[in-house]
Design a protein around this nucleic acid. Structure first.
Length: 360
DNA sequence: TGTCTTATACCATGGTTAGG
DNA sequence: CCTAACCATGGTATAAGACA
């Protein structure tokens, strides 16, 4: 059921409705982790949460190692604070590697082959360099390891969860890889229990109001583990009951902050939607399928008005500017229409490009 | 020469359901 | 509650050719 109270508080706690000015790395630290399956959408997920950041500033924060990029929660790529990569991997990797065993067998990637690949990758990166993805795959091929089909992707995925590599700064439009131990200068050491409670505190602080089921889904933990994490930090959180279900929020977020008529352009896979297993507070059941056409796990960029998802959008970057296409589910109210134009201007300013055309 | 269009290859999990 | 198996595509880079 749509709930404007939950929506308004999530907008504030997720820093989408922002009053403070934060640097890109502060956004990542406060959210704990931002899904970054699609790089160009993920940098905007950070930009959306900083009142004035530009694409160049976000990319610089990555290049200066203030933000790390690697596979973590749920087996997918996230922006995370560099000092947290190791304990997040210790928490997530064992289960994910176990679940991937069958897929690895299908791809004929046995432990011997994966170990051989890790040796090749380590040797190539140990002098502190970075290697572009196509060059890395070519290197593996030249050493006799086939990378066709999904093999190359899974070798890199497995190497990241083994703690060997993470993404480096982009080289042009290419991903690069670096050695995790060399890229991350300082790592926090947390026990399993400490990891659960730390992750729980971060999650509910920056995603609340949310349920323990939402947390388990977001973190890729079992419900049992998620409950243990939440139990350890309950005293630092406040609780509300909506429709008989318990929701947890940061203690400072009290009071009512109903969603206003503000309009935001969310990237695909944004934490505002992907951060919860139950998205019904911000998404009508009839429109939910429209943001994931084919129900295939590919989430389109969305338009949020008053905290509710009311349409999708897409952008096309051209040499002289950016084209925008908006696809609202229903005709927009006049004030939403006006604020949509402001959101478009903000997005273009993030890219450092003018808006060329706006289509419907 | 620079821009645009088109074809192609590749990259990236989330949802659902059955069964232990 | 948890795991395993299975199903389902849009976005983007890039190269080649068309075009102004």
């Amino acid at each position: 059921m749509v709930n404007t109270d939950i929506a308004g508080r999530r907008l504030a706690n997720q820093f989408i409705r922002s009053s403070a000015s934060m640097k890109p790395e502060e956004v990542v630290r406060r959210l704990g982790a931002l899904q970054a399956q699609d790089y160009l959408q993920a940098v905007w997920a950070i930009g959306l949460r900083t009142p004035s950041a530009t694409l160049a500033q976000v990319e610089r924060a990555v290049a200066e190692r203030k933000i790390a990029l690697t596979w973590t929660l749920r087996g997918t790529i996230h922006f995370v604070p560099p000092e947290d990569v190791k304990w997040l991997l210790q928490l997530c990797a064992p289960r994910l590697l176990r679940q991937a065993v069958r897929r690895m067998e299908q791809l004929e990637l046995d432990e011997k082959t994966l170990g051989h690949a890790r040796k090749i990758i380590y040797k190539a990166l140990k002098n502190g360099g970075s290697i572009r993805r196509p060059d890395m795959l070519e290197l593996l091929e030249s050493e006799g390891i086939r990378t066709g089909g999904q093999r190359g992707y899974h070798i890199l995925w497995h190497s990241a969860y083994s703690g060997l590599i993470c993404f480096g700064p982009r080289s042009g439009k290419q991903q690069t890889f670096v050695l995790l131990d060399q890229w991350v200068e300082h790592s926090r050491e947390l026990s399993f229990e400490e990891s659960l409670s730390e992750l729980a505190l971060r999650y509910f602080t920056a995603h609340g109001p949310a349920t323990v089921q939402d947390f388990a889904w977001w973190a890729g933990l079992t419900l049992t583990e998620a409950r243990a994490g939440l139990d350890a930090v309950k005293s630092k959180l406040e609780t509300d009951v909506f429709s008989g279900t318990e929701y947890w929020s940061p203690a400072s977020s009290g009071g009512h902050m109903p969603a206003t008529s503000e309009v935001h352009l969310l990237p695909g896979f944004d934490e505002y939607i992907l951060g919860y297993s139950d998205r019904s507070a911000v998404l009508e059941p009839e429109t939910a399928p429209l943001i994931v056409p084919g129900n295939n796990g590919v989430f389109l960029p969305t338009i949020a008005a008053g905290g509710q998802i009311i349409g999708t959008w897409k952008r096309t970057v051209k040499t002289k500017g950016v084209d925008l296409k908006f696809s609202p589910f229903t005709k927009l109210a006049q004030d939403h229409e006006e604020r949509l134009m402001l959101a478009a201007e903000r997005y273009a300013a993030f890219l450092g490009l003018p808006v060329l055309t706006i289509m419907r």
